[in-house]
Simulated assay, not measured.
Amino acid sequence: MKTYIIAIMAFCTNHIMGQQPLDTIYANDTKNVALFFPEPIRQGITGSDNFVFTYNREREQYFGLLQAKPGKESNLLVINNNGSIFSYIVRYKAQLSKLNYFIPLSNSIGNERPNVTDPIQVETSKKSIDNRTYYYQKFCSYLLDRTQHIGRINHQNEGVILSVENIVFDKEELYFVIQIENNSTLDYDLNFLNLSVETRQKGKKKSLQRLYQEPIYTHNLPSKVKENEIVRFVYVLPKFSLSNERRAILELNEKVGERNIELKISHRFINNPK
Score class of each variant (00 low, 15 high):
Leu195Asp: 03
Pro222Tyr: 04
Phe192Pro: 06
Leu221Trp: 02
His219Tyr: 15
Tyr217Cys: 05
Gln148Gly: 03
Leu144Thr: 05
Lys206Arg: 15
Asn220Ile: 00
Phe176Ile: 01
Asn182Arg: 02
Cys140His: 01
Leu221Lys: 12
Ile180Pro: 00
Val225Pro: 06
Lys206Gly: 15
Asn131Lys: 12
Tyr188Asp: 02
Lys206Met: 10
Leu174Thr: 03
Arg132Ala: 14
His219Asn: 08
Ser184Asp: 10
Thr147His: 13
Glu172Gln: 09
His155Val: 11
Ile150Asn: 04
Lys126Glu: 14
Asp145Cys: 10
Leu221Arg: 13
Arg210His: 10
His155Lys: 14
Tyr142Pro: 01
Tyr134Met: 08
Asn194Gly: 01
Lys206Ile: 11
Lys126Asp: 12
Tyr217Glu: 00
Leu211Cys: 10
Pro215Ile: 02
Asp145Ala: 14
Leu186Arg: 12
His149Phe: 09
Phe192Ala: 07
Val122Phe: 13
Pro222Asp: 00
Glu165Trp: 03
Asp118Val: 04
Val164His: 05
Arg200Asn: 11
Tyr134Asn: 10
His155Ala: 14
His155Gln: 14
Gln121Ile: 12
Val160Glu: 03
Ile216Met: 03
Thr124Val: 11
Gln201Cys: 06
Tyr135Arg: 15
Gln137Asp: 14
Pro119Arg: 05
Arg146His: 09
Lys205Tyr: 14
Gln209Met: 08
Gly159Val: 00
Ser207Ala: 11
Ser163Phe: 01
Ile178Ala: 02
Val122Gln: 14
His219Gln: 04
Ser125Leu: 13
Tyr136Glu: 01
Arg146Ala: 09
Glu172Thr: 08
Lys171Met: 14
Asn228Glu: 12
Lys226Asp: 12
Phe176Cys: 02
Gly159Ala: 05
Ser163Glu: 03
Leu162Trp: 01
Leu221Pro: 02
Glu172Phe: 08
Ser141Trp: 05
Asp187Glu: 12
Tyr142Phe: 13
Asn154Leu: 07
Ser207Gln: 13
Ile216Leu: 03
Tyr135Phe: 15
Leu208Met: 11
Lys206Leu: 11
Val177Ser: 07
Lys138Thr: 14
Thr218Met: 08
Tyr175Leu: 06
Leu211Trp: 07
Lys171Thr: 14
Phe176Gly: 02
Leu143Phe: 05
Ser128Pro: 00
Tyr134Ser: 15
Asn228Met: 09
Asp118His: 00
Leu186Glu: 15
Leu186Thr: 06
Gly203Arg: 04
Asn115Trp: 08
Pro119Gly: 06
Val122Lys: 15
Val122Cys: 02
Lys202Glu: 10
